[in-house]
Amino acid sequence: MKKFARHAIFYVGLVAVWALLAKLKIWPPYVFPTPWGVLEALVAGFKDHSFWIAIAISMKRMLLGYALSVFLGMILGLGVASNKFLEETMGGLLVSLQSLPSICWLPLAVLWFGLTEKAILFVVVMGSLLSVTIAMETGRHQIPKIYKMAGRNLGARRFRLFWHVLLPASLPYIVSGLKQGWAFAWRSLISGEMIFVSLGLGQLLMMGRDLNDMSLVIAVMILIIAIGYIVDGLVFKTIERHLQQKWGLSPAT
């Protein structure tokens, strides 16, 4: 628990510095809120259910968009990995597309779908699709050749070779791709939600801005970080740890 103590000291110190700066009143509270103001905003937000509603709405979009991009990304990634021509051409395109921040898809999405749920979903999918695809593709390439040879040598062919050897062999890469995809989808979702009255966490953030309520803004930011951290730390870390223990691997990057 020594590690826990170090963390506790760090965060208590951080809040203390924050409180001290706020106490000095160098900036007005709508520029620099106090810790207790943020805490109040958090409590109030959960009490009047506005946070719960926002979380539920955002998570619903997230799950839908993420599921869609995982599904499409796996198909796309495998398709690209299995064909030399596609790999050369589309592989390059995918990597260059990934340098485009997903929010850049929003104007296009709004023109296509209007200010609707679909526009947000589109941005979420575009945000994570590429990283899932690329992870699937590199996963297929990173597999040590020996597994494929051993599989063929023992009589595995075509689909069975894929299902029993290539897929499990690339699982660590797939999981890290899924994890990265989730993180990108989460970012894209929040940005997308900020654009119009969407009722999600992103919009709550913008509402704080409109009301000049800096405490609310910080409170929602903390919420967004917390949710991202919980999913990453609980869901993905658990899967990764399980894989590593079973395989005796060093952490997949």
Partner: peptide, 18 residues
């Protein structure tokens, strides 16, 4: 082509860790 009448034991073994 490969066939199970001839099995190769690789130097790196190629056992499946999963």
């Amino acid at each position: 082509g490969p066939g199970t009448d001839r099995i190769l034991i690789f130097q790196e073994l190629g056992l499946f860790p999963w």
